[in-house]
């Protein structure tokens, strides 16, 4: 029963959700929203599990002084500070246990939670995102090293696209007569992005969609069970 009940639920929910996509009549058109609301309720409870896990794993690492334990301590302290500040004075329009904290707001310019969010969290998040630029450069360098016919092709295509997206690329091919405008680097770049690139991406998307249909069918019919923890 422990194994069959989730399978029965998966079958019923799967069929209902598929049917409701094609039947706009009540009650089918309301079922997706209802199921999504149920999902959100479960997520709400699961957040607590996440916080407990965060505490447990970090405290364990700090207690056992694992390598870099001070990072875990910093993480926990940050978590507690944000939690306490949020509880005491609230966030933006929501008030906390001590109200809106007008005196604190006058001193900091915003609520303590929002102050830390804007001045600590956002810059840190942007810093992580900005690393992407350097990683793109290092990955591109490796991808463009000529080792085979394919990587050669990749490099030539990349050069055309990169140059075509800059004013320098347009300048380089400005001498090409208008009747051969296709060979202007910006036009060539647009062609590569619009046709071969889009075609390849759509091929991946279509095959992935077929994979999703197949996987969904396997789950609905109970053939695929490993997501339950075991395939038996």
């Amino acid at each position: 029963m422990k194994r069959n009940l989730p399978l029965i639920f998966a079958f019923i929910c799967g069929i209902v959700v598929v049917a409701s996509d094609f039947i706009p009549h009540r009650p089918f058109n309301l079922m997706i929203d209802t199921l999504q609301n149920w999902f959100m309720i479960i997520v709400g409870f699961a957040i607590l599990l996440g916080q407990i896990s965060l505490f447990q794993s970090n405290i364990y690492k700090i207690q056992h002084k694992v390598s870099g334990w001070y990072y875990y301590l910093a993480g926990l302290i940050s978590f507690v500070i944000m939690l306490v500040l949020g509880l005491l004075w609230g966030t933006q329009e929501y008030q906390g246990l001590l109200g809106h904290g007008l005196a604190v707001q006058a001193w900091l310019g915003s609520k303590p939670f929002d102050y830390l969010f804007d001045n600590a969290y956002l810059p840190l998040s942007a810093t992580m995102f900005s690393l992407l630029a350097f990683f793109v450069a290092s990955a591109a360098y490796r991808a463009f090293i000529i080792r085979s016919f394919e990587s050669n092709l990749l490099m030539i295509t990349a050069i055309i696209v990169i140059l075509g997206r800059t004013s320098f690329g347009g300048m380089l091919t400005s001498w090409v007569p208008e009747s051969y405008s296709f060979w202007h680097l910006p036009n060539l770049s647009d062609f590569i992005m619009e046709y071969p690139n889009t075609a390849a991406q759509r091929a991946i998307m279509i095959s992935a969609a077929l994979g999703i249909i197949g996987s969904s069918l396997r789950i609905i019919l109970g053939i695929e069970r490993s997501y339950l923890g075991s395939d038996k």
């Binding site: 991946i204 998307m205 095959s207 992935a208 077929l210 994979g211 999703i212 197949g214 996987s215 396997r218 695929e224 490993s226």
Partner: peptide, 9 residues
């Protein structure tokens, strides 16, 4: 793409 969904099988 689809190889991800074929993995379990």
């Amino acid at each position: 793409g689809e190889e991800l969904f074929a993995a379990s099988a």
